[in-house]
């Protein structure tokens, strides 16, 4: 099963839309609630990152019996130092993002915590690609 969702930079009212849809799908597939929570928290953090930092992005989701693969691709400033961005507390978020309750430098570390496999590739001035894979059944 494959799904695709568009993300709009700066539009906080839409942030969480893709995560909400994926949560509904995983519930229908009777995936364990704790696993669903890990997946949608990671995806939601990723959505918020795109809305907070990028111009636009796309979420691609592929689900089979064993695992869910999520690819979040954005057009934006990119991440100059991924190791630094992975450190808890490091943030480049604007004041307006912080007013929304985010930008504490917890996003990427929390995505890593909530996925079985995470790959990040980024090019400064171009954009970032996050690939997250999580097992949904043993």
């Amino acid at each position: 099963m494959q799904f695709k969702y568009d993300l709009e930079g700066g539009n906080f009212s839409r942030a969480g839309h893709a995560s909400s849809e994926v949560k509904k799908i995983l519930k229908q597939l009777n995936v364990d609630a704790r696993i669903i929570k890990r997946i949608v928290v990671a995806l939601y953090e990723g959505e918020v990152n795109v809305v907070a930092h990028a111009h636009k992005g796309v979420v691609m989701v592929d689900i089979d019996e064993k695992r869910i693969y999520i690819r979040i691709e954005d057009e934006g400033p990119g991440i100059p130092d991924i190791n630094l961005a992975m450190q808890e507390g490091f943030s480049t978020a604007s004041a307006s993002v912080r007013e929304m309750g985010f930008g504490a430098g917890m996003g990427l570390p929390n995505i890593k915590k909530n996925t079985d496999q995470l790959n990040i590739e980024s090019e400064v001035g171009k954009g970032t690609v996050l690939e997250m894979t999580t097992m949904i059944s043993s």
Partner: peptide, 15 residues
């Protein structure tokens, strides 16, 4: 004390 849509989205994702 933060009242915006993302609080509800956060609650939704975090059960």
């Amino acid at each position: 004390g933060l009242a915006n849509l993302q609080v509800i989205r956060t609650a939704e994702m975090a059960d």
